[in-house]
């Protein structure tokens, strides 16, 4: 379990530095042009009113969300890949994001008329998160049950795909019966958006992510054993049922919370763990877990910066950017030297 200290330190500090730089860049750039000095003044509450609102109420929460959500989605994907022994597993691929989305849709499209949808209301914060967790957890349990019976990883992926389709059918049905305002809220949500988050929501997201990452990190030792397979893990004393439940919960909390606030972020979960393995040259989860989290933050910050590049008040949905970054990585896994990507 040793990797060259120099490479490890170099990669970790490099990534931390990159997160910092990109965070700054994300604050400085956007669809509206604001001078650097003005951004700095705004951060300290001394900017002109309009600019200050853009910087503190839009750019800053967006950049913070990118850091948290990127890390959460990437680690969630890492957990799923090891848990299901499947290099193509990820929150979106296995339908877990869809499950979380169903929870969100049920909340937004059916429950919301009963409550106010004002920012910061209970429903907007923890209510939405809980619904997303429930949806994500339900899909995870179905996938787990399938993968226990089907050794073939492609079968599991196909089941995930079918689940996602089934869920989207249910959501269409919900949309059909909902009114225009609710629909609008929902459709914007599906595009993946880092910018519509209030500070109380960020706090909720940060807390949930911290909890998920903490649970995940407690499991690094069993995760490493699971690389050798379930039989080996059991014979060296891993309590598989307990471990599976904790990992399932951690992955659902991470993917569910992000999906609740930012929409289904595509391809971060599948692609980033592979980028992490490439950067650190190891499969050791003690290194991969923090490493992949940092890579996730970097990728999502970068995607967010790119999404605002067109300028002039236009923003590309962030999902489009993450897909354009993620799909080549997934293709590289599928076409890699092990053929259909049977292993990491």
């Amino acid at each position: 379990m040793k990797i060259g200290i120099s490479r490890l330190t170099l990669a970790m500090t490099g990534l931390l530095f990159l997160v910092f730089i990109l965070f700054i860049a994300d604050l400085l750039t956007g669809s509206t042009r604001i001078e650097t000095s003005e951004v700095i003044r705004s951060l300290f509450g001394r900017g002109t009113t309009g600019d200050e609102i853009i910087v503190t109420q839009f750019r800053l929460p967006k950049a913070l969300t990118a850091i948290i959500a990127g890390a959460a989605m990437a680690v969630s994907g890492l957990l799923m890949q090891t848990l299901f022994r499947n290099p193509l597993a990820g929150p979106d691929v296995l339908g877990v994001s869809s499950g979380a989305g169903l929870g969100v849709a049920l909340t937004l499209l059916t429950l919301s008329p009963l409550f106010t949808l004002s920012a910061g209301s209970a429903l907007q914060g923890w209510g939405l998160i809980l619904a997303a967790w429930a949806g994500a957890g339900a899909v995870m349990m179905i996938i787990m049950a399938v993968s226990a019976r089907m050794r073939d990883i492609m079968t599991v992926l196909i089941v995930g795909l079918l689940l996602a389709s089934a869920i989207s059918a249910v959501v269409s049905l919900l949309q059909y019966f909902s009114n225009e305002t609710m629909l609008r809220t929902y459709v914007i949500w599906t595009m993946g958006n880092l910018g519509n988050i209030s500070y109380p929501q960020i706090r909720a997201l940060a807390l949930a992510t911290a909890a998920g990452l903490f649970m995940a990190f407690l499991m690094v030792k069993p995760l490493n054993a699971m690389l050798m397979g379930e039989t080996f893990s059991r014979t060296v004393g891993v309590r598989m049922n307990r471990t599976r439940i904790i990992l399932l919960a951690a992955a659902s909390i991470l993917a569910g919370s992000v999906t609740a606030f930012c929409g289904p972020l595509a391809f971060i979960g599948v692609a980033v763990p592979h980028i992490g393995r490439l950067v650190f040259g190891t499969t050791d989860h003690r290194i991969l877990m923090p490493g992949v989290a940092l890579c996730g933050s970097v990728v999502l910050l970068l995607s967010d910066i790119i999404s605002a590049l067109p300028g002039g008040g236009h923003i590309i949905p962030v999902n489009t950017v993450t897909s354009l970054i993620g799909i080549p990585v997934v293709l590289w896994i599928i076409l890699g030297k092990t053929g259909l990507g049977r292993r990491f």
């Binding site: 050798m228 080996f232 014979t235 060296v236 040259g281 190891t282 499969t283 292993r343 990491f344």
Partner: peptide
């Protein structure tokens, strides 16, 4: 007791 089975490893780069 230790046990080595025929189950394939999930990883390639270990």
């Amino acid at each position: 007791v230790s046990f080595a089975s025929t189950e394939p490893m999930a990883v390639r780069n270990i």
